[in-house]
Design a protein around this nucleic acid. Structure first.
Lengths: 342, 342
DNA sequence: CTGAAAGCGCTAACAG
DNA sequence: CTGTTAGCGCTTTCAG
């Protein structure tokens, strides 16, 4: 391996001078040329380990995500990698599998590896001391501590969902969410949803299920049954005009499950009941929407997260940015606007 | 920051002894207890940078993938991360965006960072000197050089596709693939497909399109048009009994495009024409198949890739493993087997 | 401007 | 077994 010493010897200068040309220090033009020639000739590359050790920092950023099975996280990671590499940082990937212990282990690892910072969608309550001296930016999750949070405008998302269900003909609405203990940010969706309903005199119901019960919904008969029963409770001829005809779910994933359950109950979607999900996932991530949905602005979120991280690194602080605009994406689970006049 | 020196001082032993308890060297039970207590008390963590520098290696593995928009890559990365973290390695993520220059830059970076190795789905022809002394395992791509390749059994995949189209009633088959210059492994799909057709006296056509033209198919009107024309050429009443009634595509992505085009042409899928894609992607990555498909054994591929990488690291070589069994996943673009007797 | 030298924290001889 | 010590490759004073 060719080191800075080799370059120095070959160029006939000291290592200090080589280091200076490498890092933009003051070097006479003549010597700079000499050194650059030797670097080229020898094919020298800095050893980032040695550099990192000396500087007590690296250009790594740890990205913590629950998994990549959920396309929303995959898309987010894709966007984050793009933004980070644009500012010369490398992604050290950590998939927590929704396991708080793994998250903690990753944060310790991050400290050991002298990473520049952490960007993450984490579920565990992050303890202050775990991340002392480390820049940390949270996506979608709001903590009480000084960790800056970046998120789409959840209040607006809830409002938009209610508005679109309403304008497309639904009047008996249901807000159906899964919730973990650190989801204070996500809760705003229900607030926006409910406020729209109140302002427009719409019947509005709301259900929250523990995230733990939902997570394994495709494998678990029990949780599926729970959803089934829940829907039965709100949808029935015996309820008359109070029977639900519009549902807002906390994710596209949940929306598809609800859709399947409704169709098994003999309901037509969207003719009898409309559904709006959350995240804006598309068929193969680039075709048609899977369900009608409030789309997360993945790229803007990634961009802001990296910006906030940079602020944290440089100034030790960054503002919360939780009002990035979301949009309604029309999909197969709502009626088109045109048909309302029929 | 607490270093090994601090621990040594606190425990009243030498740094060598601390290093020994850390790395399983010979230490008397009494001192080991002492040191462990100090480590606990001081909250010591090894500095991986210093360790890496001394050892001239780290526990990082670079994973190079084109993107995470394609769910197949996202799923693969999820599985790779899981396998790698199980053997104590960290994922340094590189998304190449199908850009050969970026791939090369990443490989250089990998060398600089003293990573243990690289696992990647790369498009550029990897030059030997780029990866001197580095363990490299390729997924799905076969190179002429000594780089071991891990892949699903592509020959079997092609065979299975033809067999299932046939058994479900199609007799005029078409193999429709996109192809890049380094896809020698993927080409085996067509071989398997064709061989089944020959053995069973089926009419068999085959088309290859340059990958460059397909990549941006959702954005590009031109490439879409190309597919349209191509399909028109093979499907028309004027062809009589030679008109295609079963299509095998090189990806699920392409399968969905073909399906859309066929439906715009007024053909019914699967009644008139059946389609089988490749990769086995599911709705939201865990529900129903998007299209009928030959499913890649993502977890087995990931497991074998990590095993091959370990072999490379330890023995400097590893065998190609390109016969990991694939399976047919029934989806909405083929007729059920039962209906054949009708 | 330039060179010499002091470590960053750790491991691996080596001598005791 | 245990302590001492020489670097790994790099940046950064500090003299010159």
């Amino acid at each position: 391996m060719v080191t800075i010493k080799d370059v120095a010897r070959d160029a006939g200068v000291s290592v200090g001078t080589v280091s200076n040309v490498l890092n933009g220090g003051r070097v006479s033009e003549a010597r700079r040329k000499l050194v650059e020639a030797s670097i080229e000739k020898l094919g020298y590359q800095v050893n980032t380990l040695a550099k990192g050790m000396r500087m007590q920092k690296t250009d790594y950023v740890v990205v913590i995500l629950p998994n990549l099975i959920n396309p929303y996280f995959a898309l987010l990671l894709d966007a984050l990698e793009s933004e980070l590499s644009a500012v010369g940082k490398q992604v050290l990937l950590c998939l927590s599998g929704d396991d708080a212990e793994r998250e903690v282990a990753f944060m310790d690892m991050a400290k050991q590896n002298k990473v520049d910072g952490i960007i993450g969608v984490t579920y565990s309550k992050v303890e202050e001391e775990r991340i002392e001296n480390m820049a940390f930016v949270s996506i979608d999750r709001h903590y009480k501590s000084h960790i800056p949070c970046v998120a789409g405008d959840n209040w607006q998302g809830g409002w938009l969902a209610a508005e679109n269900l309403h304008k497309r003909g639904s009047t008996n609405l249901l807000c159906f969410m899964t919730m973990s203990s650190v989801d204070s940010e996500v809760r705003k969706r229900r607030v926006g949803f409910t406020e729209y309903c109140m302002e427009h005199d719409l019947s509005c119901n709301s259900v929250e299920m523990s995230e733990k019960q939902i997570v394994s919904v495709y494998e678990s008969y029990g949780s599926r049954k729970l959803i089934h029963n829940m829907l039965r409770a709100y949808i029935s001829p015996s309820l008359g005009e109070h029977s639900i005809d519009g549902i807002f779910t906390s994710s596209d994933h949940l929306a598809t499950i609800v859709r399947e359950e409704l169709e098994e109950m003999g309901k037509r979607v969207p003719e009898d009941i409309q559904i709006i999900g959350y995240d804006g996932l598309q068929f193969l991530n680039q075709g048609k929407p899977i369900v009608s949905s409030i789309a997360q602005p993945v790229h803007e979120i990634a961009k802001q997260a990296v910006k906030s991280l940079t602020d944290m690194i440089e100034n030790g602080k960054a503002e919360d940015v939780t009002n990035i605009p979301v949009t309604f994406h029309e999909g197969p689970t709502t009626k088109p606007l045109e048909t309302i006049s029929e």
